[in-house]
Computed example of a mutant assay.
Amino acid sequence: MSAILALALAQATAPAAAPMPTGDALVQTVEANDAALFWGFFEGCDPDAVAALLHPDFRMVHDLVGLAHDSAADIVEDSRRNCARRAPGGEPEGYKNRRLFVPGSRHVQKLGDWGVLEEGHHTFLEYQRVAPGSEERHWVQTGGGRYIHTWQWMPEEGRFRLLESLSLDHGPAPAYPPEQAG
């Protein structure tokens, strides 16, 4: 009888598994995760904030380098090193970069109750000097690409974690302003 009572007490105190969001709530959750992820890795330079979004088995495959990261710990540590280099006295001291999502390019596909597939396009910018030796700087678009993310729903945690990132179609920034049609 005590084993049954212990089991019942354990079940009563265990956190309930949260259902995966659906509809607009699902899309809004993915959008918020996407924004936090890229802010932390780029402009915000806050790898610790990003760590909570990553699945421990995270991996990133990149079209220019192949397997770029084989774990959450690897990408967080790499980001931590890069952010430290930007600090006063670091090699690229004051370096800033930014990722901008291309509006209207996001596609979210539910994968049963397991998770979602997110696909979108983004551009990259760097805060560069207007001219060599000048202190004046401005944002310059340096390239763009496409990404596909697999977000796994973690019912015990009531949230998604990024399991895999495919980073594709990287290329130079398009000319701006665009050439006028003749």
Rank of each mutant, 00 (worst) to 15 (best):
E91C: 02
D113N: 13
S71E: 10
G89M: 04
L67R: 12
A87W: 00
A84C: 02
T150K: 01
Y147K: 07
E119A: 12
Q141A: 14
S71A: 14
G133P: 10
Y95L: 13
Q109V: 13
H107K: 14
H62K: 01
D63P: 03
D113Y: 03
Q141I: 10
R80Q: 12
A72K: 03
P132R: 03
L64W: 10
L117Q: 10
E119T: 14
A72F: 09
W114A: 15
Q109I: 11
E119I: 04
Q141Y: 07
Q152P: 01
I75R: 05
R80P: 06
K96R: 15
A131M: 02
K110I: 07
R86T: 12
V140W: 03
S105W: 03
G112K: 04
S134N: 11
E126W: 00
V116M: 09
K96G: 00
A87R: 12
P103D: 13
P92I: 02
A131F: 00
W153R: 05
A84F: 07
D78T: 13
G104Y: 01
S105P: 07
G144L: 00
L67P: 11
E119Q: 13
P92G: 02
A131R: 05
H107Q: 14
E77S: 12
V76N: 06
D70S: 14
E91F: 08
L100Y: 00
G89A: 08
W153N: 04
L100D: 13
G144R: 04
G112L: 08
F101Y: 05
